[in-house]
Nucleic acid binder design. Structure first.
Lengths: 227, 227
DNA sequence: CAAATAGTGTCTGTAAGACAATATATG
DNA sequence: CATATATTGTCTTACAGACACTATTTG
């Protein structure tokens, strides 16, 4: 071995997770208060070191971090990007594998100290490069919402098409055509009506409840064109 | 600090680079022969450890690895994904930040021992999870070629629209409509004709040479719809 | 001028959005 | 029945692909 191969200087390797949820239609992100230095007491994205002895891969690390530091389980997770360099963490050259998560609000744990949900438009000042990571996650969610079924992960079991459309509109920040939206959802073929289940919500016709077809539960449906 | 934070078990952190080029219209990938264990002598994706003392970030590591292990400079690089886990490298739990690169064939170094360019369809058996990484890179290039200007990075300075269309067709593996292709390229607004420069290539009308507008040199033009 | 490829004009079909009609709840 | 929202039908418009025509070179 020559020197360049033996000098694999150790770098700090961690995961950071951006978990989105919808709070009354507003796209929001989960922040956790840091327990220790650096930035002790500061609100930040949930993150932590990889535990080589227990994590099957970095996504498992992300799930573990969410569970232990935020009490969150069963979020939909996908890898976002990896943020690296000598300056992003004061402890030294670091690698942060960032994950992007979606979860319905009702699956979040009860409000607790050290955990808060804030609108993505006003996250406050974030430590490290967490502001950058948040922006990247936001761009990812908005981008994928234009051509995939990603937003269904904001719902637990069943939902109506008008509810789903509202969620898409909340994420994308623009109104969508009702007919086109329903046509698209129909073409994606990923939803099915729950027989006999309607959501009555006022002095008007109730809406049909839908759910994700089992075959699509773990995967996303991608549309070739936009929604 | 509690135990879970002090036990940030060290993991091996490296970069792997998938560099694509076109060899007579065939999408091909650069492989380097491994100099040392594990898999000494085996053909693999160029890769190496991050050097915290000299790399500004992981992309700089990837550029350095390409330069030192393959003699490649000035490739267009973008981060692909990060591959992790205890099993992908026999040395232990590892993190490989994978990059995807594009380069025109004429910018590749002269043929040398320990370096080869093989068609993506017949890369041979690759060590680690490099087969998986290659497939992911391939999917990325094909996907982005459907809605972005990514393939212009297979050309050095100037090219004709028919040449560019052939490249898109080679990557996507299907013929494209000439009129639609030119309309799209025009809409993207990223190309400009080189005044007076034509490519005469036979007993027929010569083609106008184009180049990427300076403003788009370092970025991609994204089309909302497909090409 | 014949042949070959470059580049353009135009038609047609498909898909998205606008508009509006119908359906079904509550009070 | 008045009202409000769900759901569906239909028209219009925009855009991608098919087709064909013109342009320009070599031999």
């Amino acid at each position: 071995m020559n020197q360049s191969e033996t000098t694999h200087t150790h770098v700090l390797t961690s995961v950071d997770v951006v978990v989105f949820t919808l709070v009354e239609g507003v796209l929001s992100v989960v922040l956790a208060q840091r327990a220790r230095a650096p930035f002790a007491g500061v609100w930040a994205l949930p993150g932590g070191y990889i535990h080589a002895d227990e994590d099957a891969d970095a996504q498992a690390s992300a799930a573990r971090v969410l569970r232990t530091k935020a009490g969150i389980e069963n979020a939909y997770l996908e890898q976002l990007a990896t943020f690296t360099g000598p300056a992003r963490d004061p402890r030294g050259w670091s690698v942060a594998i960032a994950y992007c998560g979606l979860i319905p609000q009702e699956r979040l744990p009860a409000p607790r100290a050290g955990l808060k949900i804030v609108p993505v438009n006003a996250p406050g000042q974030l430590p490290f490069d967490h502001g950058l990571i948040l922006q990247a996650a936001l761009a990812r969610v908005r981008s994928k919402s234009q051509y995939s079924s990603l937003p269904v992960h904001f719902f637990a079991e069943t939902f109506t098409l008008p509810q789903l459309q509202q969620v898409y509109e909340g994420i994308l920040g623009e109104p969508l055509n009702k007919v086109s939206f329903r046509r698209k959802m129909d073409e994606l073929g990923m939803l099915e009506p729950v027989p006999g289940e309607m959501l009555a919500g006022g002095a008007h016709r109730p809406a049909q409840l839908h759910r994700v077809r089992p075959a699509f539960r773990q995967q996303l449906a991608l549309s070739v064109r936009g929604l």
